[in-house]
Amino acid sequence: MHSSNLGESPAPLVDVNGLVKVYEDKSHVPVRALSGLDLEVQSGEFTAIAGPSGSGKTTLLNLIGGLDAPTSGTVTVAGQDLGQLKRSTLATFRLNNLGFIFQAYNLIPVLSAEENAEFNLLLQGVSKTERRRRVTQEFSDLGIEPDLFGRRPAKLSGGQQQRVAIARALVSRPKLILADEPTANLDSKTGARLLDKMRDLNERTGITFLFSTHDPMVIARARRLVILRDGEIASDDLRA
């Protein structure tokens, strides 16, 4: 087993122990997506989880994000064992601690760019003034022009949608952002620019980023690279 070499450090932000996930495929044949995986992620990391298709990257991210339940093993995020939480409490935990960036952007189609970005803040009960301040700030940082604020997702390009999705993930000040193939649907130039923004945010704010990817651009920018193969960690390297 490969393990991260982070030395003496405080309690990890993410602590995955003996994680097993077995799915049933369409023919009801059990498929083992993760096979007793252990992983620790410290606060402030900018980590990519790479590997071939079917290696368990997205499954691992979904389990860390509490979007799915493991067959066995535990996932602890910010000191909280997610398996101990009820659906409702888990939702609140996600709201206050996690941000998601998906390959398909996953914006809410009936809300404008601005409303999508402030969606989580509204759920958190943040005041209108503060919501507007944070959204304007993040949009500005991500280069979203004011004339796009009122547009619905269908009227935005892929790059613009992904920037709104990143803004949505950032405005609620999460401890951890889980990004599942965030550049897969973007052209390389847009992808590179967004990755640089995320890395910059990571350096400036200390927000932890965990990517699932096989995009070389993401891998190149990650400071830690975890390679999965057949549901197990094949390598785990820290970079400069």
Binding site: R87, S88, T92, R94, I108, N120, R168
Partner: peptide
């Protein structure tokens, strides 16, 4: 279905 999934992923509670 997908939108419901998006909202729940973002922290919308089942009751919401």
């Amino acid at each position: 279905l997908r939108e419901i999934g998006i909202m729940m992923a973002n922290g919308v509670r089942p009751s919401q």
